[in-house]
């Protein structure tokens, strides 16, 4: 079953119809996730993460090996619904870039990558605002939302991200609850 069709139908049916359609939705997002496909897309995941957190004056997602983190999280810490939404999303990214740019996402230029992710962000936003409130717990999180959250957490909890993208205070030894903010102060990596 095509997820987009499902969502459209779900919208058409509104609140009353939602529970009926969830049965079909359930079958789709509760299928056994294709982890082999997930592993084969490590390079794509790295490029996607880098588009969200690029190298600037501090290291980016690739430097922090966020793709390894995302794959671990997908394999161990993600429920089946979200695994399927994420894995399907990876396939959608390449088919979208092939359709609109005639090449894979990884072959695209940075500006093209940005445009592609904007499309997926918009899609996630409409999913979130219209449907997630009704059945978010049941349907899981859309691809882009997952990608972004995983990238942020993966980056900020990595050694590279915590110590170079943020500031990491291993053993503070003291507490000062009110001090002047330094110029270009980065956030503490841990609370």
């Amino acid at each position: 079953m095509n997820r987009r069709t499902t969502i459209k139908s779900l919208l058409a049916f509104g609140f009353l119809g939602a529970s009926g359609f969830s049965i079909f939705k359930w079958a789709d997002i509760n299928k056994a996730p294709d982890t082999k496909f997930l592993l084969s897309k490590k390079g794509l995941i790295a490029d996607l993460a880098e588009t969200i957190i690029p190298v600037t004056d501090t290291p980016g997602a690739k430097d922090a090996k966020v793709e390894d983190y995302i794959i671990t999280m997908m394999q161990k810490c993600t429920d089946i619904k979200n695994q399927n939404l994420f894995i399907d999303g990876l396939a959608d990214v390449d088919s979208y870039s092939n359709k609109h740019y005639d090449k894979s996402f990884q072959a695209c230029k940075p500006t093209e990558k940005t445009e592609i992710l904007k499309h997926f962000e918009k899609k996630a936003h409409s999913f979130n605002s219209l449907i997630a409130k009704v059945e978010g717990r049941y349907l899981g999180d859309p691809f882009f939302t997952q990608l972004k959250n995983l990238t942020v957490t993966g980056y900020c909890t990595s050694q590279v991200g915590a110590t170079k993208g943020l500031v990491y205070d291993y053993i503070p030894g003291m507490y000062n609850g009110s001090m002047p903010l330094a110029p270009h102060q980065k956030s503490w990596a841990t609370k």
Binding site: T51, I52, P54, T56, T114, V152, G165, L181, K186, S187
Partner: peptide, 18 residues
Amino acid sequence: AGTPGFGADFKNTITTPG
């Protein structure tokens, strides 16, 4: 992390005290 957008500006926002 829920701040809209992505890329360099987004990175700056999430790594700067809110």
